[in-house]
Every structure is written in C-alpha cells, then in structure tokens.
Amino acid sequence: MTEPIVVIEHLQKHFGKFQALKDITMTVNAGEVFGFIGPNGAGKSTTIRTLLGILKKSGGSATIFGQDVWHEAVAIHKRLAYVPGDVTLWPNLSGGEAIDLFLRLNDQAHSPRTDALIAKFDLDVRKKARTYSKGNRQKVALIAALSTDADLYIFDEPTSGLDPLMEEVFQQEVLGLKAAGKSVLLSSHILSEVERMCDRIAIIREGTIIETGTLDAMRQLSRTQIRVTTQQPLDAIAALPAVHSFKATGTKATFAVDSEALGDVMRALTPLGITALQSTPPTLEDLFLRYYNQEGGADDATR
C-alpha cells in the first residue's frame, strides 16, 4: 500500500525574482487521498501546475509514477485526471462537447458512467459554455475527470463555486475513488472536506511545506482545549509546563494542553476534585490557524 505515486523533493519555482515555491517535499502514496492545504497564494496551484508539466521547475525534483513530470508529461497524463480551481471553457462549445473532448484527449470515450455523473451533478450539457456559471464550468471539468479511468486524480480547490449539495456529491465520488484504490491529490481550503476524506495532509505556507502527516499524528502534535471546574483552586495546574493560555476565575478554568501530556495533566487535576470537565480535541481548523498564526506572527516580528 505504500508504493509512492507522486514524489516531490525540494521543489522550487521562481517567477522572475519572485520565489513562489521555496521548498516543497511530499509524497503521495498509492490508494490514499492526500490533502494539500494552505491559504490563498501559498503555492498550491503552482505546485500542481509544475506537477502537470505546465510550469517548468526551477530546482528540486518531481516525479509521478516514477517518471519526470516535465520530460514524460504526455505519458504521465495518460494515467491522470485533473480539475483546476478555475475552469475556463470555450464560450461556443456546449458542456457536452467539452466533456467528450476532454475524455477523448485522453483516448477515452463517453461512457454510461459519464451519463450517470451528468445526472448526479445535474448539468444541462446542451447549454453553451458562455452561459455557464462558475459552478457549472466546474461541474464540466469534474464530470470529465471523474469519468476518466485514471490512476491519479488531481483536484485543485475543486468545489469552489459548487453548492453544498454538489459538494456532497463530489465527496462521495472521491470516497468512491478511494475505495477503488485510486490515488487522489486534493488541494483545498475547505477543512471539513479534507478532514472527512484525506488520509494524510500537507500544509503549505509561502511556498514551503511546514507539516506533513496523518491528521491523527498532527493532532498529537497539537493541543487539546480543556474547560474544567474543581473544588479546590487551580493554581498548581497553571504552573505545569504542558499547560498553555491558562485563564481562571475562581475554581473555573480554561486552558490548552499539549496532547501528548494529557494524561499527566489529568492526574494532576484529579486530586483537586473535578466537578465538571469538557475536553475538545483540536480540529483541523485549530491546527491550521495555529500554524499560520504562530509562524505568521514570528514572520511579522522579523519584518
């Protein structure tokens, strides 16, 4: 199961003087859904376009199926399906024509699955692309990609512009791909989406991958929120090294605990006589915000 499909090592990309990608290192394994998250302008799309051989890397290396993404682009693309974040179509082609064209460009044909997807996504394929909303153009690319029989699927913020109903359809389809053993690289800023579907994630910020791993492992690295009421004062707790942002009013307190030290803190709390306890594990959102605030703050300070 851990056969690597996409291997990126120290990938760099400059646009003139501007360095869009500084150090991207990550691996997508066979059969996993890999989440790629980061704020706008972090370099997600640039990474993906470099993977597609649309942009030429400035340094490092990137391979898909063990082949170089620039030199072997055509061979790689035979086994790959892609949905960009902002789909632009030719105004005078109908949605149906565009879907068929995209399938045929990969030597595939309109199949019953294509029709099923058109029905699921509820797209009027006879309309000219000129009249499509952003969401409808997105659907065209999604239908074409999902009905392509590929080994690797790359989605770049694919649900921007889709309504929640369609977002749900998309998530089911991705889970279907996962069940079928396909690999998926999903860039997104919708964290609930990532949380629900992804096995592993990488967090990118200003052109650098700052964290990679499973969600659980990342949670371990993060802090759990505790809200507690005790019979005796909580002063001793505040002094523990694993406890952060401690706020107390009398015998009520809220604080954050490094997840790996949760047991120790609990042992220290018990003798104080717990009357109420509420613990919240970190959500991806907490993780996300923590990485950004922390590093962003440090960054601002050095500027």
Partner: peptide
C-alpha cells in the same frame, strides 16, 4: 485559461 485542461491531457 481554456487550454489548461488540454495541457493536462496526454497531448
């Protein structure tokens, strides 16, 4: 941007 999807195909 309309060629982006073509660039990503085996063309």
């Amino acid at each position: 941007g309309s060629l982006e999807l073509v660039h990503a195909k085996s063309v």
